[in-house]
Design a protein around this nucleic acid. Structure first.
Lengths: 222, 222
DNA sequence: GCGCTTGACAATGCATACATTAACCAATAC
DNA sequence: GTATTGGTTAATGTATGCATTGTCAAGCGC
């Protein structure tokens, strides 16, 4: 891996983000600049910069004298996030369909759907989730709005922990795969409005499902 | 003013942002850490942090050895931004209407519309633009999705310079005021879907108008 | 004249030093 | 027991120092 030319700040961001996403740094926990610097084997300066970046990405909150606090994600937070993702990804679906992409451009999306199909067959939820991520990522990628892509990526990261929790509680995600195939078809047909509707409904259903699970299982925060 | 308890970093962010928004720092211009530190009378550390924050807000790009570059905003950038604002503000309109706010909650929006009416009468474009900002700000504020509010605020800032340029080229914004009144009515009636449509159309029209002006007057960047 | 190499310079990335000040705790007053 | 005050401590905010390294340009070969 090309960690050779990474700045210390980047290293800190990457490493801290990994630790947060994997719950190695527990939601709600506090971490002082000095601690983290020692933990990562760096001086406070790059750690401090990394903390500010993570704060900008909504993963932590920096409170003077208390270090950074890993933000818990409540059901209410997830609702905010899913609403935003719903609107923006639906827009991406619309735009992508509207610009009538060449068939081969859609290869990543097709690949992702195929992978999801396989994962579904062997009930490998982790593989399925990964392919699902690829699908959504390819969608906003191909839509071509760089800012939209950046926002979606930020909030997908925030949602990551919650998705991992509900992954094993939800029913087999076969309906999702149908949605994805249908979306792909609408995009291929250049039917922008249909693409938007399909994806919007897909996201709305996913949102409802996730929130139900989070609330039912008493996760007021993650 | 409470600039007393502001950290130097905050001061730097505020001041640099002001300079960028007012074109005191020209789009496309480059500025080294050292220069800015001297300019603001600080050491490089808080300036450096401020640069990173402005980069996170999409106003500048930091390139090692070249300092920060004030990002020009092209018509293509404005299109991206307006698409995002359209979707998210329309969602805000929907949500606000759906939660049937108390009449007095909407006072800021009503006030903004009144102010716009007055400004329109005396053809005071700057005052009109300010009131328009208040209206949109109040809308996303009242909708209650904090993340949505934060995104909209970020991208509104990015659009600021372009809006200021087209402000005096556009026709008298009377249609805007009609839209705002209609939106307010739909929200009062709790008619979420109508509110969404009205605001979406409002934004789409504004987008088209602005892009036409930018392109017609040869502003490939601002 | 054009492109490549080389070397000096200077901007940066990071470490560290230091003053400030908020948080905590103990002791006191009520 | 609770609230208030004052002192101590340590985390931060900022400045500064220094090694690294990318940039730029002059000079060289072609």
């Amino acid at each position: 891996m090309g960690t050779r030319h990474m700045s210390q700040t980047e290293r800190a961001v990457t490493e801290l983000k990994r630790k947060i996403m994997s719950n190695e740094l527990a939601p709600g926990s506090n971490h002082l600049e000095g601690e983290l610097a020692a933990l990562l084997g760096l001086s406070r300066t790059p750690v401090r910069e990394a903390m500010l970046m993570l704060e900008a990405h909504g993963l932590v909150e920096v409170r003077p004298r208390h270090g950074m606090r890993v933000l818990p994600i409540s059901a209410a937070d997830m609702e905010e996030i899913y609403q935003i993702l719903t609107e923006l990804e639906s827009l991406a679906a619309y735009d992508l369909a509207a610009r009538r992409p060449a068939i081969e451009e859609l290869a990543p999306m097709r690949q992702a759907v195929d992978d999801m199909e396989v994962a579904l067959g062997s009930d490998d939820r982790v593989a399925w989730a990964e392919a699902d991520n690829h699908f959504h990522e390819a969608l906003v990628d191909l839509a071509g709005n760089r800012r939209l892509k950046s926002i979606v990526s930020t909030y997908s990261d925030q949602a990551h922990r919650a998705r991992m929790i509900t992954l094993h509680m939800r029913p087999k995600p076969s309906k999702s795969n149908e949605d994805h195939r249908a979306l792909l078809k609408a995009i291929e047909a250049g039917d922008a409005e249909t693409a938007r509707q399909i994806h919007r409904n897909h996201r709305l259903r996913a949102k409802g499902l996730m929130l139900d699970l989070l609330r039912k299982h008493g996760f007021f925060h993650v």
